[in-house]
Design a protein around this nucleic acid. Structure first.
Length: 569
DNA sequence: GCCGTTTTCGGCCCGACTGTTTTCAGTCG
């Protein structure tokens, strides 16, 4: 088992313990152990002793060792015996925690989300402590949850794909091997993994893949392709062609469906026919395979279209006119403007985060810890903020390779005022303002609230502007188009938060913002050193939104960024 | 269940919000 799987198992134990009604701190211990495992750089299976990880003691170490060696820990077996597995999924419904899930199970006999969705009106409301509103919220959550399939987040999908790629590439019969599908287009969530490979011996590759150690079930198998379910439930498909046809196959399986349909129509108008096997005379039935995608697009009279743009949102017309955007790239990013430290709820120190940023070649890094009212995140009082600022200044002197700046992610309070006085904000190098409370406000007041924050002269960017959490929480009710207009009017940047479960702004909003002349920041919101690498997911999202480097604040080289800070809004 | 120049026991991150209450439990971040 990999670290991520072990961490997930520990989290499951925590949820089950809480459903059972165990003492909170015992639950917390498993959650913390899960975090440590997830954040560990090396696979825990390779550790001498898991107890070297923070918050892992004797008990959780034994559990981790069991999991690492694919044994079911005693505690998990015991809990699984006692509590139906579906209850864990129930707790993922917004507003339903372990206590509620436990009561629904014990008092109404439901064990799965679908069963909750099917409950008769009034049955939840009849329970002690529940009323009409709670019932409505739970039923709504359950019903929309069932209609939404669970898709992988980009980082999970990328990691899973990397393992598969490695396996296929290491096979002696493998030529070029690439990921296709929505992962190659860097869609914010991914349903299944599509791999395409070039090989003179497709059969050998297909058979090796079907027999791979990570494969749990082969769902279909042919001479040139195979579909499997991997351990952990990830569905994957491998298609193999001869090297001459690799470009055609890669293009076809990269999609999107809409993009390919538009391309086929275009081919048709030119008397051609396009398929996964190549390009042919219309009605001829024979296809000329194409070795590269570039060749394919050229044959259709188009510039090469980056995978992120292939959604039939105007990219084909732009490619025809030679007006495709020059998309921002990871290497254009000069710094990260929103990272946390252990002054608030981060794991890294000022120094360790700075060193990680130097590794990435950044010219600057802005520490934006939480503000005072966000106690759960250990938000900084003005006094502690001052103390941190001194620490950042000292570190800045110690690391000549990088410019270290002290900012804050200041809470936008319910009325749109900010969680620090202006005099405090004025001391900071950079201020990101974000909503972390009262998510259920109506759209009008919520938008007013954020707009008011934008009008503060010290606020340079709005953090994760819609608050959505992919697969978990809808955006709060906010009129993003109005935010964009106000951002343009107040010269406030909007953050494109690169955290894989946020990717907030969404692609359509980011595109709208840039068209309106609003600048974006692409920030990781990193809470540990490793999360700094999430930048690539934020950049990918920006690319899907046709964003060019000049629209991104943190693509500015240091002297220009410094000038941007100095000029103010 | 974890942890320790306050401690091997007694803390541990806790306040806001919501919906349901008449003093609070559960969820969220």
């Amino acid at each position: 088992m990999q670290n991520a799987d072990i961490a997930r198992a520990l989290e499951t134990i925590a949820i089950l313990l809480e459903i059972r009604g165990e003492e909170h701190y015992r639950v917390l211990a498993y959650q913390r152990a899960a975090e440590s495992v997830a954040a560990a750089g090396t696979p825990v299976a390779e550790l001498e002793d898991p107890r070297s990880l923070p918050n892992v003691g004797g008990t959780t170490a034994r559990v981790i060792n069991d999991l690492a060696q694919n044994r079911t820990p005693e505690i998990l077996a015991e809990l699984a015996e006692e509590i139906p597995a579906g209850l864990v999924e129930l707790t993922r419904l917004p507003g339903v925690g372990p206590r509620t899930a436990g009561r629904l199970w014990r008092e109404l006999g439901v064990t799965r989300v679908e069963e909750v969705a099917a409950l008769k009106e009034g049955s939840i409301a009849a329970l002690k402590g529940f009323g009409k509103k709670s019932e409505e919220a739970i039923l709504r959550a359950a019903r929309s949850h069932t209609s939404r399939e669970q898709r992988m987040l980009l980082d999970e999908a990328a990691a899973a794909a990397e393992r598969l790629l490695e396996f296929v590439r290491s096979h002696p019969a493998a030529g070029r091997v690439e990921v296709a599908g929505s992962l190659r287009r860097q869609k914010e969530t991914v349903g299944d993994l599509n791999l395409v490979a070039a090989s003179e011996d497709p059969k050998a590759l297909v058979e090796a893949f079907a027999a791979a150690p990570f494969v749990e079930e082969v769902t279909s198998r042919g001479a040139t392709g195979v579909s499997v379910v991997c351990a952990g439930g990830v569905e994957a498909e491998l298609r193999v062609v001869s090297p001459e046809g690799f470009g055609s196959l890669l293009q076809h399986f990269t999609g999107s469906r809409a993009h390919n349909a538009a391309l086929r129509e275009r081919a048709e108008r030119r008397g051609l026919s396009l398929s996964e096997y190549g390009l042919g005379e219309a009605g001829g039935g024979r296809y000329e395979p194409l070795r590269t995608e570039e060749e394919l697009y050229a044959r259709l009279g188009l510039r090469y279209i980056e995978p992120e743009l292939r959604e039939d949102r105007g990219e084909i017309e732009a490619a025809e006119r030679g007006e495709l955007p020059e998309l921002v790239e990871v290497r254009d990013i000069r710094g990260d403007l929103h990272v946390h430290t252990n002054y608030s709820d981060g794991k890294g120190t000022v120094e360790s985060m700075a060193e990680a940023a130097i590794e990435l070649g950044y010219e600057y890094l802005v520490f934006c810890d939480h503000s005072q009212s966000l106690r759960v995140a250990n938000g900084l009082s003005p006094g502690r903020l001052e103390e941190k600022m001194r620490a950042v200044r000292r570190a800045d002197e110690r690391y000549p390779e990088i410019h270290l700046l002290c900012g804050a992610e200041v809470d936008i309070l319910r009325d749109g005022s900010l969680d620090y006085e202006d005099a405090v904000l004025a001391e900071l190098d950079f201020v990101v303002a974000s909503v972390h409370t009262a998510f259920r406000m109506a759209g009008g007041p919520m938008t007013d609230r954020i707009v008011r924050a934008m009008h503060n002269p010290h606020v340079r960017a709005i953090g994760h502007p819609t608050g959505r959490l992919l697969n978990r929480r809808d955006p709060y009710a906010v009129d993003v188009s109005r935010l964009i207009r106000e951002a343009a009017a107040t010269n406030t940047a909007l953050e494109l938060n690169a955290y894989p479960d946020r990717l907030d702004l969404s692609v359509p909003h980011a595109r709208e913002a840039v068209r309106a002349g609003v600048r974006l920041t692409i920030d990781t919101d990193a809470h540990d050193e490793r999360a700094l690498s999430f930048m690539r997911f934020g950049v990918a999202q920006a690319r899907r939104a046709w964003v060019e480097r000049q629209s991104v604040v943190n693509c500015l080289p240091w002297p220009e960024f410094e000038a941007y800070l100095r000029e103010g809004k």
